[in-house]
């Protein structure tokens, strides 16, 4: 108990430190001290430098943490309710659906009515991502559908949306194609305060519900019959979790594009460190996801000097070593 609280606190501290590092790194020649001074009293820097800190660095760093945390929390809940270690927003088609939505807007110019240019892509991505989770929900609500049916259906969704996107790419113009490819690599460059507020809002709405059902999720890991027999309404638990997942992952991918790795691996990192008592696993997953994304954001700015790499690419490069290390450490412990 104490050890677990310490591990979660350690994760939180690591998140804060990485977030600060993320804030003070970047292509412009601002020193760390300057940035931190500016944060404490706005206006100590010149106007353009102040703008860099407040309108670029801060929302991007916040977005990195928030996107990682949302995708990872969504992944952790998905892995539990679908009883599958490979479940994540990326592997079950939510990200593919978002790409499909983005492609509709970028290539075909199709969007919801009364939506202006800037909002077309994220809104389309959100609507499609949300829709894909609703489809998963419908499947999971069918009486006979077990967790495997849902996972298989999710995989079918991945292939369907990928094929549709590929088809649109095939018929698209050079320019639109480039835009779409960039979108689907996942980038924090599009972060604004609006997107930060949107994700903070979604987190504030979903996290309390996640934590409230933590005990039930822990028991669900021991099998559906057992959970039922202990008085858990498994269908309802699964439905509510899928609702949270759709909000979290839909909003996250809408603003930053496809980021595949975090939602799958960060929950595993948390699980390897803390086990599966969901009271600890769920918050730790969110923190681990935020940490991985923040690290990725730092590296995306520093890996190749002078070049800002798409964060989606870097995420895997950062996450894989951590993950492999944990797996091997665990195996040697057994």
């Amino acid at each position: 108990m104490l050890r677990k609280t310490l591990v979660v606190s350690g994760l939180a501290i690591a998140c804060v430190l990485t977030f600060l590092t993320d804030l003070v790194t970047g292509p412009s020649s601002l020193s760390a001290i300057q940035v931190i001074q500016e944060l404490f009293s706005r206006g100590t820097l010149s106007v353009p430098q102040s703008t860099i800190v407040w309108e670029l660095r801060l929302p991007q760093a916040a977005m990195a943490f928030l996107v990682g945390a949302s995708l990872s929390l969504a992944g952790a809940e998905m892995q539990t309710i679908l009883n599958n270690p490979l479940a994540s927003p990326f592997t079950l088609g939510v990200s593919s659906a978002a790409s499909f939505g983005a492609a509709l807007a970028i290539i075909m110019g199709i969007s919801l009515p009364f939506v202006s240019g800037d909002w077309m892509v994220p809104l389309n991505a959100f609507v499609c991502a949300f829709g894909s989770v609703l489809l998963l929900e419908m499947i999971s609500r069918r009486k006979a559908a077990g967790a495997n049916t849902v996972v298989l259906f999710g995989i079918a969704l991945v292939f369907t949306f990928n094929a549709l996107v590929a088809f649109m790419q095939f018929v698209s113009s050079q320019e639109a194609l480039q835009q779409l490819v960039f979108w689907s690599m996942g980038s924090l460059g599009r972060s604004t305060w609006t997107s930060v507020y949107a994700l903070v809002g979604v987190m504030l709405v979903t996290l309390p519900f996640s934590l409230r059902s933590a005990n039930q999720m822990t028991v669900l890991r021991m099998g559906e019959d057992r959970a039922h027999s202990f008085g858990i309404n498994v269908a309802r638990l699964r439905f509510m979790a899928l609702m949270r997942i759709s909000l979290l992952s839909g909003t996250a991918v809408a603003f930053v594009g496809t980021i595949g790795f975090v939602g799958l691996v960060a929950p595993h990192i948390a699980r390897l460190m803390l086990g599966e008592d969901h009271k600890f696993l769920l918050p730790a997953s969110a923190l681990a996801g935020g940490l991985v994304m923040s690290l990725a954001s730092v590296l995306s700015k520093t890996l190749v000097p002078g070049v800002l790499l798409p964060v989606g690419i870097v995420t895997s490069i950062v996450g894989v070593p951590i993950f492999v290390l944990l797996i091997f450490r665990r195996q040697s412990a057994i």
Binding site: T218, V219, G223, S229, R271, G275
Partner: peptide, 29 residues
């Protein structure tokens, strides 16, 4: 669930919980 509890033959294998957490979980749910 207050009256009747069914115990399946086995617990699934791959769960990262301690024995104590598993037993306590049944109460805390």
């Amino acid at each position: 669930a207050r009256h009747i509890t069914y115990t399946p033959q086995e617990l699934p294998q791959q769960i990262a919980l301690t024995v104590l957490e598993t037993v306590m979980g049944a109460l805390q749910v």
